[in-house]
Amino acid sequence: MTSKPAAQSHWNLDEVVAGLREQRARWREARHRSLDSGGREFPARDVMQTIMDQLCGALFPMRLGPAELRAESEDYYVGHTLDTALNALYNQVQLELSYTARQQGRDVAEVPQQARDITDAFAAYLPIARGLLDTDVEAAYEGDPAARSVDEVLLCYPGVMAVIYHRLAHKLYRLEAPLLARIIAELSHSATGIDIHPGAQIGSRFFIDHGTGVVIGETAVIGDHVRLYQAVTLGAKRFAAAEDGSLIKGQPRHPIVEDDVVIYAGATILGRVTIGKGSSIGGNVWLTRSVPPGSNITQAQSEQHSPSASPPPGF
């Protein structure tokens, strides 16, 4: 039997590879970057997705864990899964901290201990996260007459899944692992169509109904027992700029939504405004002003108070 000749490429791959190498070198040189570490510099999206799948299973083992899991082995599964997930998370935290230290010209010697401290604090938060998420699941069940059980909303509702991801991403954000937090948020965004920046502060019993197109900005503050419907935006009205024209980052620029507020589909609320406790914001309302507690804002009322030419939203 004669062997077949190896397949030859018809795509001029040597030239393509060389061209890509040249472009990478040019990009790194312009930004004073190198690959001195010899390995990967950044956390990996696929690794973070695996970690999130494991964390969701550990938080809700009999519903989001493996199909073959039995109650008698629940604790063993949770412990084993968390050990795997947290060790992987520790490695990803190290990558982020090492990259940040190099960019800032700091010594990376302290990174392993810093990564361990962050991972320890994150692990300790998981029981608290489960308690918060139980209130979110209950709010979704109680707030939707179509829901037949709390199990249904946990297994099926994209709004609930987005909140699970956000609770975990927000903790990492607060622990100063913002890149990992943002990766988790974007994994959720890709899967659910719901875009919640990990910096957003969200109280208990939070429910996003339907969910597609919801946007919640970095500095938004949301109280307890708040319900949003699809295509709601809690965005920024404008961005402050420095003298050189660069955007000033981190300043409060998104709405504050107090307790017991309902915001209906398509509403857009922009800027550091406050939606008072117990208010109801109607569908398709465009709002750039604060409203007092107990307000009931409709589209017609919003138009009466809006300027004739409103600036485009920023997120």
Score class of each variant (00 low, 15 high):
S279V: 06
R45M: 14
E258G: 08
R33N: 00
H166M: 12
A231Q: 15
L35M: 06
M52R: 01
I128A: 12
T219H: 01
F315H: 12
E218T: 13
A191V: 09
F122K: 00
V78D: 11
G203N: 10
L20G: 00
H225A: 13
F315I: 08
L154T: 10
G223K: 05
R106Y: 02
G271N: 04
R182M: 11
A300Y: 01
L95A: 09
R21Q: 14
M52L: 13
G294N: 08
Q230A: 04
G203F: 04
H197D: 14
L270C: 02
H254A: 07
A85P: 01
V137R: 15
G235K: 06
Y141R: 11
I51K: 00
I263G: 03
H170L: 15
I222S: 09
P313Y: 07
T219M: 08
S295V: 00
Q114F: 06
D259K: 08
E41Y: 06
G213I: 11
P198K: 04
T135P: 01
L132E: 05
T268W: 01
G283Y: 03
R26N: 04
R289M: 05
E243A: 10
P61T: 06
T233Y: 09
D244W: 09
G211I: 08
L154S: 06
Q114M: 06
A200R: 05
T100Y: 07
G282C: 14
M1C: 05
R182Q: 13
S9G: 07
Y157K: 02
V108K: 02
E186S: 03
A6I: 12
Y125G: 11
I183Q: 12
V221C: 05
N87C: 04
E176Y: 15
S290C: 01
G245K: 01
A146R: 13
E243P: 03
I256R: 11
R28I: 12
E138N: 05
A220K: 13
L180F: 14
R148Q: 09
Y141D: 07
E243M: 00
L154K: 12
K4E: 10
G250W: 05
L64M: 12
S246P: 08
G203Q: 15
L133Y: 07
G250R: 00
A242Y: 14
A242H: 13
T84A: 02
G217R: 09
R116N: 09
M48A: 04
G193P: 05
D209K: 11
S290T: 05
Q201H: 10
D53K: 00
I196G: 06
I248H: 08
I184M: 05
A115G: 02
V291T: 07
D75E: 11
N91A: 15
A241L: 15
E41Q: 13
